[in-house]
Nucleic acid binder design. Sequence first.
RNA 1: GGCGACGUAGCCAAGUGGUAAGGCAGAGGUCUGCAAAACCUCCAUCCCCAGUUCGAUUCUGGGCGUCGCCU
Length: 303
Amino acid sequence: MERGRAAMTQVPVVVGPTGIGKSQLAFELAVQLGGEIVVADSRQVYQRLDIATNKPSDEHRRQVRYHMIDFVDPATNFNAAHYVEGARGAIDDIASRGMTPIVEGGTMLYVDALCDGFSLTGIPPNPSLRAELEALDVARLRARLLAMDPDPGVDLDNPVRMIRAIEIVDAAGPPLRRLRTRTPPTWQPLRIGLTAGLATIDRRLDERSHLQVERGLVAETQAALDAGVPPTAPVLTGIGYAEALAHIRGELTLEELPLAMARSNRRYARRQLRWWRRDSRVLWFEIEPDPLPGILKHVRKAA
RNA sequence: GGCGACGUAGCCAAGUGGUAAGGCAGAGGUCUGCAAAACCUCCAUCCCCAGUUCGAUUCUGGGCGUCGCCU
């Protein structure tokens, strides 16, 4: 069958909370399996901002080929649909060359959109409509949305979700639900979760935050500003950069900076854990004893 | 030692004689094109004792504590 090899291809997908060593594990997995890594991360796609986005080291990049990082102008916006398109292409490309694609990431929506094949409705953002809708309060947004689609299936308290819903229905007509479909990819995701106790995660995040500041996070942020990246750009709203900006504005001392970063990271890590722990398809591995052998065994058995 | 102010959740902080705003942090949850975002839910009986009162976190007295000023 034509879809033959591709259809059967198992793609390891390494997920888990930030700061737990996913990147390192994916690297080791790639080395062992002869693979290339497709990062699923909404911030690593942007060029230059390396420190707080936790991009792979030059050393790792020399040994393993990485995809979906470092290719978007930081002054622009990138989104889940762009990601899925690029990542699917990357995976097909890797597989076509006989290598093993390995997805690794932290952005929950990106991972699920890619691996579950979310349609994302196919309607692109409409900036002028968004600008208009952003001026409305929640009640008005809700009324406007319900007038177009009485049962849109979105959080009616959430302005961001309602604006998106209105945008879709405005372009494609109701009902919204019919546009949100799933078309699984031609390959089989093998979800591997990396986890650890919260105390361990918190300690690592604390250490990493201090390290990032020492490595020049503030200078990197300032350089981005100097290069014309607006403070409102998505990258600069990310963990680390948001705090660095606050420091540059004088709202945080240099001593407070890593503490604030660690706090944001803790919150994010917990959200990631909550997102994936409800997904029964994820097989979890503790990071404490080296999880690589067990993961390799699992991957090889599945293949 | 004297004088003054203050003492509300982990932190910041409103407030009233009738049974405690809000913010941050924390916990849980939602999630199909901004997702490291956005949104939802939960989270205190007001320093201690006595008194006044139908009823005190809110009034009075005492104690303890903190801060400031003075000697």
